[in-house]
């Protein structure tokens, strides 16, 4: 009886760990190990094949002097400031509009706005490259047909940034809209009522 109890207890203790083991095995192999490896490699001279050679902070010193790296940091920040506020604002407006009770074809609008999110990034990249091609693209055709000058979208820094921001906004707007709709639905009606009365 005591033996049975002991083994039952032991089982009770071990089972949870077995249940989470598959994830942690993968986590250690494909996440923790590579992260630690990256950290060590960042202090070393390593070409991917030969032995690592410890060089201390030299890689980091090189990095902060690297013009391309610094520019990429700025680019990242510019892109962030460009599309994040715009996307959140658009998503919120759309969510509010689609949350109105008397709007019909809600399902159609929601699907239409959400569909870019499920589309593969590769396909999206190519279709945007084609649409914003400076010579053969649809965007410039639309501009020139109403008498505006064509814009070198992808060959100018500003144009390329704009197109990239547009692509990201286009792809993730529907996703953010869905999140906001779910958020709006948790707001109690009494608050809306109060605002309307005011």
């Amino acid at each position: 009886m005591t033996k049975f109890k002991l083994s039952y207890r032991f089982k009770q203790k071990v089972t949870p760990y077995i249940f989470i083991l598959p994830f942690y095995l993968l986590f250690i192999t494909f996440m923790a190990y590579p992260v630690v490896f990256s950290l060590i490699a960042s202090f070393s001279k390593w070409n991917g094949v030969r032995e690592m050679e410890w060089v201390g902070l030299r890689n980091y010193v090189n990095l902060i002097q690297d013009k391309v790296f610094l520019q990429s940091l700025i680019n990242g920040l510019v892109m962030f400031l460009m599309y994040v506020p715009a996307m959140i604002l658009f998503a919120l407006i759309l969510a509010i509009l689609l949350n109105k009770p008397n709007i019909r074809f809600k399902n159609f609008f929601r699907t239409a706005i959400f569909v870019p999110y499920i589309t593969s990034g590769v396909a999206i990249a190519y279709i945007f490259m084609l649409i914003f091609d400076s010579k053969f693209g649809l965007a410039n055709k639309a501009l020139t047909s109403i008498g505006l000058p064509a814009i070198p979208w992808l060959s100018s820094i500003l144009g390329a940034r704009f197109v990239l921001g547009l692509l990201v906004t286009w792809k993730y707007m529907g996703y953010n809209m869905i999140l906001m709709m779910a958020g709006l639905q948790t707001i109690p009606d009494s608050i809306n009522e109060a605002a309307k009365i005011d």
Partner: peptide
Amino acid sequence: TYLILLIVAFFTLMPFLW
């Protein structure tokens, strides 16, 4: 509301049409 939704839906679907 419908106008805004239609314009947005046009722009989200247009790349697929193209």
